[in-house]
Write a protein that binds this DNA or RNA. Structure first.
Lengths: 211, 211
DNA sequence: GCGATGTGACCGACGGGTAAATTACCTGAC
DNA sequence: GTCAGGTAATTTACCCGTCGGTCACATCGC
């Protein structure tokens, strides 16, 4: 038990402890979802008491917002960086995934924070996530638009569905990665490359609807 | 829990009412998730009282299990039918999606029941869903294995990741479909065909790792 | 009347949130 | 140096709303 003596104004700086709580909470929220994660669980995992969490973050949503701000900043920045490097189409998607693998290697659960269906869709925390999610989705849309327009598709609904699908693909890889802790970022990138190549080279039959 | 010795000889037949409750509950569970759906909500939506739900299904998990059994049966049967028609590779995936669109046109939320992260992972209901999920995943694996082996990939981890990704893609289309009620099954199938064709024809750059 | 069918009202557990007590640290008079 | 008093940090113990689950009573066809 971490029932160590209290540390007054000296000892552990408040900023460090906040960071530790956010780290632990991000794992919990990202793993079990917002709704299924109790503040008491987070506090126990961080080695402190529940009221202290409230003293730092005000509410469960406040804690959530802090996690989202960190996650959103980390991811949006990285994805924007890839967007500026001039790649396009499928390659841009693969590079984005590779960058995310590299950034999240020791924080794999973070991606799920921004796509947690159990999180409330209103309130101040929702605005934080909406901001970052919109930024990330805009970048995804940009990439998808580029890819599809190259194939002559400009229909808004097609683009919208493809954006959703792309985000779902990222979800899937993150889920799989979380379930396979021994796989490092480089191995994941190589895996994605293999799978993409396999898909593109499929010639077992043209995709056509039945009669 | 053992059902009371009620023969349901009068009034609205019990079977009909059970079916209606399952229908309503499937929408609720599939839309909001198991954890966020209250039994009282389901009862109200079905126009009956909460104790009656318990009289029929014994517990919230019992109700959930009934929804899962219907959803699982519906989907597994349909997917198995497609698996037997001899298609392969990407085309098999598209045909599976088309079949799912056709079956779920008026029950779009049903797919989410089997992939609900907020559902408990133990208990009798979990065994029901595990059974069907395993059946569906086995079919997905079969299709993926076929697709990847054609490209020379047999690595177990690659296959496992691709299966997860495929299920994620289906998730994404279902989510998008639920958010676009005006799109019918045929429109969805055509959309998938367009998007697949666009992906396969991407030549904006070969996906290769750095130098 | 009587049993099947259904309901309003209630119970207990759980989790977010808070007030009061407790601990640890700092300050300053002696 | 040290010890009383003040203050900030932290915890223990509690409140309260929600929700799964149950019970005593109402209703209805025979």
């Amino acid at each position: 038990m971490a029932a160590r003596p209290n540390a007054g104004t000296k000892g552990v700086p408040r900023a460090d402890r906040e960071q530790e709580i956010v780290r632990v909470a991000s794992i919990a929220f990202g793993t079990d979802g917002f709704a299924a994660t109790g503040v008491a669980d987070v506090a126990r995992a961080a080695g402190i008491s529940k009221p202290l969490v409230y003293s730092y973050f005000g509410s469960k949503e406040g804690l959530h917002a802090a996690c989202l701000a960190e996650a959103g900043g980390l991811l949006a920045e990285e994805i924007e960086r890839v967007a500026r490097d001039g790649s396009a189409g499928v390659e841009r998607g693969v590079r984005t995934l590779a960058a995310m693998f590299a950034v999240l290697d020791d924080r794999r659960h973070v991606w799920r924070l921004l796509r947690d269906r159990t999180a409330p869709d209103d309130g101040p925390a929702a605005e934080v996530v909406a901001q970052y999610a919109a930024r990330i989705e805009a970048l995804a849309r940009e990439g998808v638009l580029e890819l599809l327009s190259g194939a002559g598709i400009t229909d808004e609904l097609d683009v919208s569905a493809m954006v959703r699908t792309w985000l779902g693909i990222v979800d899937s890889f993150m889920d799989w990665w979380v379930a396979h802790p021994d796989q490092d970022a480089e191995a994941m990138t190589q895996r994605v490359l293999r799978l993409v190549a396999a898909l593109v080279s499929d010639h077992t039959g043209r995709a056509q609807p039945g009669p």
